[in-house]
Amino acid sequence: MDTVVIQNVSKRLGGTQAVNNLTLSVQPGEVLGFLGTNGAGKTTTIKMLLGLLTPDAGVISVLGGDPAVAAVRSRIGYMPETATYYPYLNLHELLFFYGGLCGMPRAAIRSRAGILIERVGLGAAAGRLLRTYSKGMLQRAGIAQALLHDPDLLILDEPLTGLDPLARIHFRDLILELREQGKTVFFSSHELTEAELICDRVAILKQGELVVCGAMHAIAGDGGQNLERVFLNVLGSDAAKGVLA
């Protein structure tokens, strides 16, 4: 059974057709890169996958259920695009807060938080208030909170924003490690080079419609094309402006 099933899903926000008849699935243990320019409908799709928005048409199934149901969401880890967390908490307190929301016992939170804080390289800063964190540190805190309850599916919205090159390498290693553990990763990004290195498959969205979806080697490896070239060819000159911006 596929971990994520999106079937003929459409969503209109205000006067804009944010997502139009999108059909996509993600298999267990797969890393899917969800690509597109700004306003392509990536974040709207992610919000529907989290049950935060209801599709106008079509069906969404995550881990075999409706993501609006709390039991389904307890198996999803989510990291938002803009990682601004509670500025008056430190990282320990933040993880205890999110762990409490997941219904984790304090001892379990303590042990898991300790491992994750070290894993994301924030051991020295874990006692500091989050308002003193840099953007990259907040991104890493975001990864820790997303992984806290050991989810089966990880949904990451622009996770590489603000990360320095070293942190990107660590992030890439972390995603590959999660894949080895059999976790499914669905991540949206503008970072085509990173997507190329991490993803098993990519799906490219243009104005709410899926224009390309396939295995990385099939769409980018053929004829010496890299993903950036495929992206430009598929999305045209408008996308080129978007990428350069």
Partner: peptide
């Protein structure tokens, strides 16, 4: 404003 509502509601909480 700070969009912390998204990770909050993405947790299994009503």
């Amino acid at each position: 404003e700070s969009r912390t509502i998204y990770p909050l509601l993405a947790k299994p909480v009503g």
